[in-house]
Amino acid sequence: MEVSFAEDHILFLRYDFPGATVHPTGTLTARQIRDANWILSPPEIRTTLGETLFVPHAQQAQLEQFCLRNGIAGKQRLDIWSDLLEPFLDTEFGPEHVQATDKRLRQAGLSGEEVAGIRRRVTPLMHAYNFDSMLWEWVDLSLYDLLSAATGPLVDPGIQAALGDPSAFYNWAMEIAERRR
């Protein structure tokens, strides 16, 4: 991922997620941005179309300055994908924690059946990403991790291909991300 900030737009010089409006390259104007969270790692931009785009962590301060200069709101929100991908962490959670996660997912409008279906679809991908690759993430897996697993070098291309069309998978992930509180 490679990004360059201008006065009123962001140039995505290399964006690795097929299906993204800025893949493999593209421009995003300040008017196309709903809000941003420069505190996250990697920082996120939410577009007016409901897409989440990422910038490199090293450019956190540049994103913050860009947003302040252009009147773009900084907004922190929970990542619904972090809750959905929690079972794929190298961590065990107690029943109270699992119930709290389930409650947040229900509050975001996801039924237990839908959560189970989503997790079933991404199980081979996320197991390969976090366990088979020996990444062993134990704190948080997010939308960025999901997209990295679907397109990056840590997962066998056969597992990635089983997800179907990369652009369709990306759009599906974004639709779910948009449901966060």
Rank of each mutant, 00 (worst) to 15 (best):
A6S: 07
G117K: 13
C67A: 10
G158I: 04
G50W: 02
P124G: 04
L85I: 01
I39P: 00
A6V: 14
G112V: 07
W38E: 13
V98P: 02
L110T: 12
Q32G: 15
A58T: 06
D140R: 15
R77Y: 12
Y144E: 13
R180V: 01
Q107D: 13
F66N: 12
A61Q: 15
T27C: 11
R180F: 01
K75F: 11
Q65N: 14
R121C: 10
E96S: 15
Q76A: 03
R181D: 08
L125W: 06
M1S: 06
T101F: 05
N70V: 00
P42S: 07
P42V: 00
H23V: 00
A168P: 01
D16F: 01
L89S: 02
D145K: 05
V155N: 03
W81V: 12
E96F: 08
I39M: 13
Q76H: 11
L147Y: 06
F54S: 10
G158C: 03
Q59N: 02
L63Q: 09
L143F: 03
L89A: 01
H9K: 15
I72N: 06
K103V: 14
V22F: 03
T48E: 12
F54Q: 11
A116V: 00
G74N: 15
I159E: 07
V122P: 03
L63V: 05
A58E: 03
V55I: 01
D35M: 11
I176R: 14
P157A: 00
H57C: 10
L125T: 08
A168E: 10
A162C: 15
I45P: 06
L135V: 06
G158D: 11
